[in-house]
C-alpha cells in the first residue's frame, strides 16, 4: 500500500537555483531514493514502495518548514509554512484553491498512513520560499491527477499560484 504514497498533482518547480540546474536539485528532494541501488526496469512497484519507505525513514514531525516534514512526502511546490501560512492555512492575501490533490504519507511517530490533501494557495504571485520538490511517482500531463506541472488553482477566484499546503484528511 505504500506505493500509493506517490501521488501528487501540481508542480511548481524551483526558483532560481544554485550552481547547477534546479531540475537537478530535484535529486536532493529524492535523497532517499537516490541512495537506493539502481535497479533495471521496475514493473512491480517494489521501488515505489521502497521510495515511500525511504521518505518516511528520514522524515521528521517537528519542523513543517523543512522539506522532509512527514506530510510532504508527495509535496511539489513552495511551502506555505515558509510564506507565513501553515500546513492548513494560506499566507495573507492568498486564497485556498477549492480543488486539491490527495496523497498519503506515513507518520514516523506512529507508523500509520495518513491521507494528505495538498492544496494550493492562489491569487498572489509565486512566494518563492522553501521550494520542496519531488518527481517520485510523477506522471506526464496526460495523467493530470499525477502530474506536477499543472497549475491546480481550479475553482479559485484566481489561477495565479502562490504556495502549497498539506492538510490532513484522515487515517488510511
Amino acid at each position: 500500500m505504500f506505493d500509493r504514497v506517490v501521488e501528487r498533482l501540481t508542480r511548481r518547480v524551483a526558483q532560481k537555483s544554485s550552481r547547477r540546474s534546479f531540475l537537478a536539485r530535484l535529486g536532493t528532494a529524492l535523497a532517499g531514493g537516490a541512495l537506493l541501488p539502481l535497479l533495471p526496469v521496475d514493473r512491480s512497484g517494489r521501488l515505489k514502495r521502497a521510495h515511500a519507505q525511504a521518505f518516511a525513514e528520514q522524515a521528521q514531525t517537528q519542523d513543517d518548514t523543512a522539506c522532509n516534514y512527514w506530510r510532504y512526502c508527495a509535496m511539489d511546490g513552495y511551502l506555505c509554512t515558509c510564506c507565513n501560512g501553515a500546513v492548513n492555512a494560506c499566507p495573507p492575501g492568498s486564497e485556498p484553491s477549492p480543488t486539491s490533490w490527495v496523497g498519503s504519507c506515513i507518520n514516523p511517530d506512529d507508523g500509520q498512513t495518513y491521507l494528505i490533501a495538498y492544496r494550493d494557495c492562489c491569487g498572489k504571485g509565486v512566494c518563492g520560499r522553501c521550494p520542496c520538490l519531488s518527481t517520485e511517482g510523477e506522471m506526464p500531463v496526460y495523467r493530470p491527477q499525477l502530474s506536477n506541472d499543472i497549475d491546480w488553482c481550479f475553482g479559485a477566484r484566481s489561477m495565479v499560484y502562490h504556495c502549497t499546503t498539506a492538510g490532513l484528511v484522515g487515517r488510511a
Binding site: 547547477r20 531540475l23 537537478a24 530535484l26 535529486g27 531514493g33 521501488l47 515505489k48 518527481t135 510523477e138
Partner: peptide, 30 residues
C-alpha cells in the same frame, strides 16, 4: 530525462536524446 529532451535533425534524420544516470523517477534530471 530533462524537459524538451528529444530532438530530430531534419537533414540526417538522427535523433538526439538527453540521458543521465539516476534512479527511477529521476525523469526530470538534466
Amino acid at each position: 530525462g530533462g524537459w524538451q529532451l528529444l530532438a530530430r535533425d531534419p537533414r540526417s534524420g538522427r535523433l538526439y536524446l538527453l540521458m543521465h544516470k539516476g534512479p527511477k523517477w529521476s525523469h526530470k534530471w538534466p
